[in-house]
Nucleic acid binder design. Sequence first.
DNA 1: TCAAAAGTGTTTGGCCTACACCCATGG
DNA 2: CCATGGGTGTAGGCCAAACACTTTTGA
Lengths: 210, 210
Amino acid sequence: MLLVERGQEPYAGRWALPGGFLLPEESAETAARRELAEETGLADVTDLHLEQLRTYSEPDRDPRMRVVSVAFAALLPDPPAPHGGGDASQARWVPYDAAVDLAFDHDRILADARRRVGAKLEYTCLATAFCPAEFTLGELQQVYETVWGTALDRPNFRRKVLATPGFVEAVPGAARLTGGRGKPAALYRAGPATTLHPPLLRAPREGRPA
Amino acid sequence: MLLVERGQEPYAGRWALPGGFLLPEESAETAARRELAEETGLADVTDLHLEQLRTYSEPDRDPRMRVVSVAFAALLPDPPAPHGGGDASQARWVPYDAAVDLAFDHDRILADARRRVGAKLEYTCLATAFCPAEFTLGELQQVYETVWGTALDRPNFRRKVLATPGFVEAVPGAARLTGGRGKPAALYRAGPATTLHPPLLRAPREGRPA
DNA sequence: TCAAAAGTGTTTGGCCTACACCCATGG
DNA sequence: CCATGGGTGTAGGCCAAACACTTTTGA
């Protein structure tokens, strides 16, 4: 999770989700993309998937004034070192479990984001957005295992992914070592499909025991 | 679909989704609930499910000025006759397929709503929100068939619903005739569950043919 | 007595879990 | 030659699609 440390009141010194205000001629997504570019220093955020989560509009969520926030989630496979700046004194990447006690209602927003992304992994091809342009099936599986917090059976995962048309496309002849050791893994690219039919269900080991 | 006919420019005389502006101390959901109550004349919209769809913030979506809209979907089993009023000259219920050529970007919003509701039927218990407090399984099945536009096998649908714990609860001893003829159907209430595991998949007759 | 709708039973096939096994590479 | 990760094969079991059948009502 990309967090910024607040430099001003309210919540000075607390960590928060990065964000900012819309410019007069911006849509919320354009503004989110701009803020992300500023915070990460990434040059090409144009083809990055931005998932609109939901809008938070409770009148008292910011003690200074009424602020309506449209929350987005972006998924970066290789996060660069973040830049501080603006009203944030510094920025850093933090594991999900360590991102607690945030400013404003950002704990809730982050929890909503986690649940939404976890659910979308089941029935969309979103997982490839966490991977670099070319990735191994082991890396793709780790995305699921990390977000869901469960272990998946490798052979079955592999079959299910390859059986879904348009989910991934093989990069012919390419292979790469992943963990340093072991057999080099074949490389894949994200395919044209966006939804998974049938879905990739969670908790395969949580069925009724034999 | 509840539509209102616009009485003012822009788009005077065109049909549009009902809506309005936030009051100073309202959240978007509170405002949506208030607008819905005004438009339908319903007294108790407090325990009605309001699903936040997404926020539309393109700068030019309203020619008069910049308007950011937070779209919600409400599901009414027995819609009452709507009230006109406000800047709408009249209001009416319209079948989904007839709700075309709406004002602003409301065609897109309506299409987003349809897709979202259809998807949520698969993995949540949302369908009961379309039914009255006590309903038959045939009525519940019609919700799925209407939104998805597909036919479902009645015995299998019945088993799947009853096999999902907390989806529906039998009303003991109660029965009601549905189509005028036929055997009276047992009545059910919505259960405490909110998500379906495993999901109720669409398109059972669209698998690879034998 | 027929039509229509609810509800039950049963077969069959497909999918999917679980696990065993081979392959390739680095140390 | 062993540990590690990639990849293939397969048997068993569960589940669900498909459809036949019974039940109960109104006309």
